[in-house]
Amino acid sequence: MKKALEIMGEYSLLMVKVFQKPEKWRIFFRQSVIEAQKLMIDSIPLIFVISIFIGAVVVIQTVNNMDSPLIPKMYVGFMTREILVLEFCSTMIALILAGKIGSNIASEIGSMRITEQIDAMEIMGVNSANYLILPKIASSVVLSPFLMLFSFVVGLLGGALIIAITGLITMAQYVDGLQFSFKIHYISYSMTKMSVFAFIITSLASYYGYYAKGGSLGVGRSSTKAIVISSVLILVFDLALTKLML
């Protein structure tokens, strides 16, 4: 328990150091573009593959479980859309990103810590936390909602694809369902969730990397911790935000 309080204190202090005015905005924007590429753009292929498969699987499962002739077939499209937008494209994708970019960030910053590169920045008078971490948080928080949208669209396409291939239902029924009782609010809810998750992932991974110690083993440990803790927090915040926003 004391440990948890200590971590929270240390984490808050680090965030205070992170959220300072950058020494030079030009450097901040340059780093943000680099991080956007590394953390967000480079995740697109993975998200594409996962979303297209999940979209297809959700359609098949829904069809299989709605065999009553009383339920109109267009509900397959409706259900698929709701599942994707409400949980899959934000929470599931966030959990996957926690693994991918969480370990990337924690090991990058962690290895800079143990090879004294962070000390080298500090001794120059550079706020290393601000220089290294703020661009990661900023680019992820701003861009991850668009990854969610992307995953949503690709997921729906995956569903369409499996319908085109197998003819489980007609495309018209599927499209009808997709348009049925559409709530734009769900999209903004999901995009907001994604931003919050992105903050959790990037800030926690940065924290565990920044305070890594004990050689390369320690870096490995901190990246594992970052993934585990941020995954748990993503689920907790998923619950909280759902209570709050829906």
Binding site: K24, T115, D119, V126
Partner: peptide, 23 residues
């Protein structure tokens, strides 16, 4: 530093220009 602590994301000249970029 003992292990030199050069920034491994940067070339030799970028390493040396790093503090100049900031200050």
């Amino acid at each position: 530093f003992q292990g030199s602590a050069l920034f491994d994301f940067a070339t030799v000249e970028e390493n040396i220009m790093f503090p100049m970029d900031f200050f």
